[in-house]
Amino acid sequence: MISFWAEKGVDGFRLDVINLVSKEQDYQNDYQGDGRRFYTDGPRVHQYLRELSAAVFNKYGAVTVGEMSSTSLQQCQQYSALDGKELSMVFNFHHLKVDYVKGQKWTQAPFDFIELKTIFNHWQQGMFGKGWSALFWCNHDQPRIVSRLGNDQQYRVESAKMLATSLHMMQGTPYVYQGEEIAMTNPGYTSVEQYRDLESTNMYDIMLNQQGKSEQQVLAILAQKSRDNSRTPIQWNGDPHAGFTKGVPWLEVAKNYKQINVEQALKDQNSVFYYYQRLIALRKEVEVITAGDYTDLAPEHRQLFCYQRRSDKQTLICINNYYDKPFAYVLPMNLELHNAHYIIGNYPEILSVQATRSVALKPYECRVLLIENH
């Protein structure tokens, strides 16, 4: 089946939950969990992937990305090993569970910022020189990132750009999900009738009728966690249904579509859309983004995500304020700044600012500093 599409010229394949295709053959009951330990990263999964790769992916020069469910760093080092015998790169979801309370998705809570940085550090350092990651915030199963980790009201544009920057300056291949490049938000549905996702409507019934939560509580949880948050129609313009269709869409568009749409983004040179273009261009221009190692410079800081990428020729510092409070930060004393300059930031004036050791950050501000090594 894959060869059929490769013969037609398809250049890349995403393999859904591919690490679940090999099962333990004795089919035990699981009295401690939900059974996933018997089918996750199973006994023959690497054999299967090597067979697929030899027969199709390497034969046709295809790019492949494997979606990995409940996997580990060690497994992903092997799935995406640089010898190319299995997959080109891997998705993992650990960083998108930092707003789960005790591992439970259907809860309402702020995200754990320290845990988010810890997970990125674990994977960035662990994959360096061994495998290759797919970098992402959004997909069809995840709420909109600007609503989830950013501020989708007063600082929607600033926080969307900051979140994009903090991801795109890491090592790996970034993925941009439809609507992310114009900072689309969760739709803010207020009735269960607006949801179509069966997981969401089933959980509405369970939380309301079995767990004893109030309807207000349940709707607040759905508004934060439902997969339908990311499945609303792309907002093309200010026409009815955001220009997506002349019919009735499967899901209602967000009420903010007249302000947040592609047409408006293309008219504004400071829009999130053009900012994404610049981030993508930088990955082709600045070698250290692709090749450098990774060090978290402030792992315990409760407001700042600041990391360093370093290669033989260059050092890059990515500075991100994840909150709406301004503050000053002092860069490490061992950084040589006399040969440093800013290459991007979400407040436009940053490119004309001289690099100094003390950095005064605005709400949700990000800056990327490039240093040419001697």
Rank of each mutant, 00 (worst) to 15 (best):
L135S: 01
V192D: 02
K97R: 15
Q217K: 12
V146K: 02
G188E: 11
K102C: 14
N209M: 03
V146R: 11
D205S: 14
Q217T: 10
H122C: 00
F111I: 12
Y175H: 12
Q153Y: 08
T165I: 00
S191G: 04
L149H: 01
G126L: 03
Q154P: 02
R148V: 05
L222A: 13
N92H: 07
Y189G: 10
A164R: 00
K97N: 05
D205F: 11
W132D: 03
A223K: 03
H122R: 08
M162L: 12
D112Q: 10
A134C: 14
G212C: 04
Q210M: 00
A160M: 00
M89Q: 10
D141R: 07
E193H: 10
G126D: 09
Q108V: 09
G150L: 04
E215K: 13
R196K: 15
P187H: 02
L222I: 13
Q216E: 12
T107D: 02
M162C: 04
T201S: 08
W106H: 06
S191W: 05
M162K: 06
I145V: 14
V90K: 01
M184T: 05
A223M: 13
L222C: 14
I114R: 14
L116Q: 10
A134S: 05
P110T: 11
Q217D: 05
A134M: 12
I182A: 04
H140Q: 14
Q153F: 07
Q194I: 12
D141W: 11
F111L: 15
K117R: 14
T190Y: 00
D141V: 02
G179E: 09
Q178A: 12
F93G: 06
V176D: 07
N202C: 02
V146H: 04
S133L: 15
P187F: 03
G129K: 00
W106Q: 06
F93S: 00
L116W: 13
